[in-house]
Nucleic acid binder design. Sequence first.
RNA 1: GACCCCAUCGUCUAGUGGCCUAGGACAUCGGCCUUUCACGCCGAAAACACGGGUUCGAGUCCCGUUGGGGUCACCA
Length: 462
Amino acid sequence: MPSKITTRFAPSPTGYLHIGGARTALFNMLFARQTGGDYLLRIEDTDRKRSTPEAIKAITDGLEWLGLMPDKKPVYQSKNFEQHVAIARKLLAEGKAYHCYSTPEELQEKRKKARAEGRSIRYDGTWRHKTPSEAPSDVQPVIRLKAPTTGATVIMDCVQGEVKVDNSQLDDMIILRSDGTPTYMLSVVVDDHDMKISHVIRGDDHLTNAFRQTQLFNALGWQAPIYAHIPLIHGSDGTKMSKRHGALGIEKYREMGYLPEALINYLLRLGWSHGDDEIISIKQAVEWFKLENINKGAARFDFGKLSALNGNYLQTIDNDIVIQLIGKHSKIDKTFNLRLKKGLSSLKNKSNTILELCDNAHFYLCNRPVSIEADALKFLNSDALVYLEEIKTRLKFLSTWTEEEIKSEINHYIRAKNLKLVQLAQPLRAAICGTTVSPSIFEVLYALGKEEALGRISDVAR
RNA sequence: GACCCCAUCGUCUAGUGGCCUAGGACAUCGGCCUUUCACGCCGAAAACACGGGUUCGAGUCCCGUUGGGGUCACCA
C-alpha cells in the first residue's frame, strides 16, 4: 500500500454527469477520505471537439449537489498538453515508439477485411519495422507504442482480482495523433503519474484499458497505480446504461424530487455492502468503506428502492428546508407557507419524493374554490351537504381554532347525529381538499385556518 | 467474432467450507391499527443457473456447460 492514498474522478465533459459517474466519484471520495488521502477531480477535456463548458458545469453542479466535490481545484487535462506530447516524443526518441504512416482509411479497410475473414482486427504492426526512408511524404504519421508481443500483461485489481491478458491480444496503441495531439491512453497515464494517483477507481468498462495503460507505464519505467474496476450500473433491462436506456443526468434526479443524501445512500448500496445495513450516512460510509466489499457483478438500477430510501430521508429533513424544496416546484406565498408549517409533518410520511409531496400538499397550495376530483364528488350527496352545512355553523362558533377544539366539536356533532366519523370525514375531505385522501381531517381544517376552511365548506354546501 | 468479466429471492444484497431449516432491504400478498390514503407493527410467498469433481461436509473451492455483461477508434 502506497504511503499516501490519492484518488481521482476523471470524467470527460462531453455530456451530463450520469449515475454511474456519480457512484465512481463517491467511491473515490470515500476511499481517499478514509485514509486521509486526497480525492481529486480531473476533467478529461482533451477531445476539444466534444468537450463543452456546459458539460463541465453540469458535472461540477452535479458533484456539488451530491457533496462530491474534491478539496483541491479540478485539473484540466488539456492544460497538460505539452507534457503529454513531450512524453510521446521521449518514447519515440528512446525507440519505444515509432511513426506509423497508415491512414485511418487504410486502417478502416484492413479492419473491414480482417473482420470479414474472421481474423483479428488489431493493428498489424506494418510500420513497426519499416524505416523512415519508406515513409510517404504526403502522410502525417501518428506515433504508436512499441508494445511487447510476447508474454502477458497482468493487473492485480482490487475488485476483480488478478486479470491477465496475452500481449498478443494487444496491438500497438496510438499515443500521438497525426495532428500532434495526445490520445486518451497517453494523457491518462501521464497525468495519473504526475498527479501521483495511487488508486484508480473507475468503471468496469475501463478494465481492458488498464492493460494498455499498464504497458505504457512499463515502457515509461513508472509504477502503475493500483486499479479497482467497479461493476457497471445497468438499466432495468440489464444492459449498460446509455442515453437510450435511462441514463439520466444527475440534475434530473434532483428535478424528480430526490434528495442528494438518499441518492448517495442508494448508490453506495448498489454494489457495495456492509452486512445488512441499509441506511448509511456519509460519515458512517467513510468509516466503513472497503474496496474488498465491492461486488463484482453489475447491478440494476431500481427506482422503487431509491424512492423508498428517499422517503426515509425525507422524514429526517428539517421542515423549513423541505418547504424550500417544495418551493422549487410550486409557488409558495406567505399563506401557503403558514399552512405547510402546520401540516407538513404528516404529509411527509405519505410521500417518498419532493414531487409526491407537492402532489399531496396540493390542497394547501391553492386558494378557493378548490376543484373537486370526480371520486371525491361522490361523497357530496344530499345528506352530506346537510351535515356540512350544520358542522360549518358549529365550527363558526369555535373561539379557538386548534386541532383539539375542532376534533371535539366534530365529535360532539357526530354523536348528536348518531353518525360514524367516516360519514362526515369523507364529505369534509372532499369539500376541503377536493380529494378522497388527505392527512387527518382535523389537522387539515386546523392548518388551513378558520376562514379558509369554513369558506371551502361554504363553497360546496349551499 | 476475439478477448475479458460476472452469476444467491422479481430487484439490491448478507454469506469467505460446518453457525444456512440460506438472513436483511425494496417491491408483492395477507392481517392489525385507523376518519380516508399512508406511516407503523405482525405475518406470507419468493433464490444458491445447470452438470461434474474436491471434501467427512459445498451457496462457499476446482473444471465444464449455459446465461448475462463489458471492450475491441487518430472518443474518452
